[in-house]
Structure formats: structure tokens, C-alpha cells
Nucleic acid binder design. Structure first.
Lengths: 137, 137
DNA sequence: AAAATAGTCCACAAAGTTGGTGGGATAATC
DNA sequence: GATTATCCCACCAACTTTGTGGACTATTTT
């Protein structure tokens, strides 16, 4: 399951997608509009900035905004960034690979199943972007 | 990600699948062959028994064994039982549904995406069984 | 230059989850 | 009744999650 942090991140990103190209948005505005604890949100947005997803401006007229077009930012990227691995096992993760203890990957049936699950999930997550977070008009 | 507990459960079930129809298997045997901490395994197997997956016998000649044919037990069932929800959000879970706070499901883009991810994952997990855990002969 | 605005950074803490252990009770067999 | 093996409960250390508090820095306005 996605952590609360991840859910907050998506709420914030959805809001910033809505306001794309309309200048910086205040943390406090996102916090109140999307009902996300302000200080927690602060951490999350900072993390997204450090990862290159967001840009920020200080002082009056400042705030956060998307660095790229929402349609260019994959949902998979955000999940990996904020939530961690998408795969259900370390030994089938593309970005967080870790070999299993005592599990021969070439003869482990679970391994094969989890690769299929991973690829099925990625089929969706790699092809959806922040633009898909908005309800259709 | 699957918890260690879930990974242990699958290791144990793989072993019991191998030994299907060969009588009860000792916890201690599973523990040593699959390198799973004995006492932890005890809890896991008991849980699987209470859920109707395993059967057990006490005393000499006792142990655990699968209650049904491995090919009849879906991987999805085990994941839900030991690991919890398969979906990435409570509001798209079939077996663990919980409404999101402040998220209108009819207009939440993330909701739609996560339904697709869920269905993609279930497409695999609901169609694989314990029999698929064994390496092909 | 001072004041106001708004993000940055660090440290901490309560609560919950995970992974695991210890010891005794219960049931079946020899 | 001794042995074997599961059942059951209670507890625990470590880690993660979900936050909060407070000071600092950069930018703009007055």
C-alpha cells in the first residue's frame, strides 16, 4: 500500500498540476486546499524538489511549481521516489534490486510470478502521468 | 513489498507443495530446509491453518500439510491472508476497502489509475497457484 | 536598512509495525 | 506416563511512519 506520505504527495502534485503555468503556489495553500498537514507537506515538497520534480521560489510571490509539463512526469517515477519499490520482492525490483537470501532465482517459482506482477503494474504506472491525475473536463 | 513473514510463508508453502500427499511435515523440517526461524514459522503456519489453508496433526507422526490440492490454492489468497491488501490504496481494495478521507472517488484521477494497477496485478495473482511455486521439471 | 514573506533545514518524538523469542499448555502416540 | 509435536500467549527490540517545533536563509516590499 502507498504510505500516507505518498498519498499526500499525489494530492499536492495533483493541485500543482491544476495550477501549472500559473506561477508559484504556497505550501500553505496546498495544505489547506488538499487537507495535508502543513509541516509534513513541507518535507514532502522539499524532497520532490531535490529530486528535480518541483521548483521553488522564496519570498513574496514565491512557492512551489512543477518543473516540467505534468504530461512528462510518470506516476511510476513519483511512486519510486516517495514510496519506494513497485515490485513485491527485492529480487525482482528494477530500481531497488537486492538478491534474496537462500533463494535461487533461476529455480524460484515465486520469483517468476512476481516478475509478471511487476511488469503488469509497470504497464500502467509507466504510462500514466501527472496529467492523468486530474478529473476529465 | 511483501513482508518477511509473507516470504517465509511462501517458502513454507512451496515446501509443503513439494511434499503434497506425502503425509504431515514437521515445522522443524521446514524451518531447517527453508532457513526460516522456527518460532516465527510456528506462528505463520498456525495462521495458515486457522485460515483453512493448512491442516495439522499433533504428536508423533504429526506436522503440517496442505488441506487442498496446491493447484487449487491461489497466490492472491495467500498474499491477502499473510500480507494484506494487494491494491495500492484502501479506496481501490476489493477485500480491504476503506473510503479515502477528502477524496471524491468519482473525480479522483489517482483512484482510476490505482484500479488499473490493481486489476493488472490481480490478473497474475488470481491465476497463479501454489503449484506454480515449484520449478518446472 | 528594516520588515515581511516564504522556503530550508535539523532534530526530535509518539505511535504503529515488523521480526522474532520464551515458556508453558494441550493433544496424540508409543 | 513418557515422548512428541502443535497450540497459544505474552513479550520485546528495532525500525518505520507520521508527524511537530524552532531556528535559519533568501527574496521582496516598504
Amino acid at each position: 500500500m502507498l504510505s500516507k506520505k505518498s498519498q499526500y504527495a499525489f494530492k499536492a502534485l495533483a493541485y500543482l498540476t491544476e495550477k501549472f503555468n500559473q506561477g508559484p503556489v504556497l505550501i500553505s495553500e496546498i495544505s489547506s486546499k488538499k487537507k495535508v498537514p502543513l509541516k509534513f507537506l513541507e518535507n514532502i515538497l522539499l524532497e520532490l524538489k531535490k529530486a528535480g520534480i518541483l521548483e521553488s521560489k522564496k519570498g513574496k510571490g514565491g512557492g512551489y511549481y512543477l518543473r516540467k509539463d505534468p504530461a512528462q512526469i510518470k506516476v511510476a517515477t513519483i511512486v519510486r521516489l516517495v514510496n519506494g519499490p513497485i515490485a513485491m520482492l527485492p529480487c525482482v525490483s528494477l530500481y531497488f534490486y537486492k538478491r534474496c537470501d537462500n533463494c535461487d532465482e533461476t529455480s524460484c517459482g515465486l520469483h517468476d510470478i512476481m516478475i509478471q506482477v511487476r511488469d503488469a503494474s509497470l504497464g500502467v504506472l509507466e504510462n500514466k502521468t501527472l496529467a492523468d491525475l486530474l478529473p476529465m473536463k
